[in-house]
């Protein structure tokens, strides 16, 4: 009853994650974990204390285990342009 009213549109779910840590998947094999400070209807977001995980596939590498590399970067504050967002989710533990 209460929760039915809470979600009038999909973005209301995102709103509930304000000031919480969220997981954001981006185009270009990028993932973000950070505290959601702000968002808008384009899914532009401001993330605080964000960690970016970039996955790189090296097709010249023959060893399959080494072909996939991840680069981790940390940002204190990050503006994410909405057009690259694939999904937003609560953090995966």
């Amino acid at each position: 009853m209460e929760s039915a009213q809470a979600v009038a549109e999909p973005l209301d779910l995102v709103r509930l994650s304000l000031d919480e840590i969220v997981y954001v998947k981006l185009r270009g094999d990028r993932e973000l974990n950070g505290r959601l400070h702000a968002y808008d209807e384009h899914l532009n977001m401001v993330l605080g204390d964000a960690e970016e995980i970039v996955t790189i596939f090296d097709d010249e590498e023959t060893d399959k285990d080494k072909a996939l590399k991840t680069i981790r970067k940390h940002y204190e504050m990050l503006f994410v342009r909405g057009d690259s967002v694939i999904l937003i989710a609560p953090p995966r533990n």
């Binding site: 209460e2 929760s3 809470a6 709103r15 509930l16 994650s17 304000l18 919480e20």
Partner: peptide, 11 residues
């Protein structure tokens, strides 16, 4: 009942 309810209440 759930955490989501709390978050909604806060919003």
């Amino acid at each position: 009942s759930t955490k989501k309810d709390v978050l909604h209440a806060i919003e």
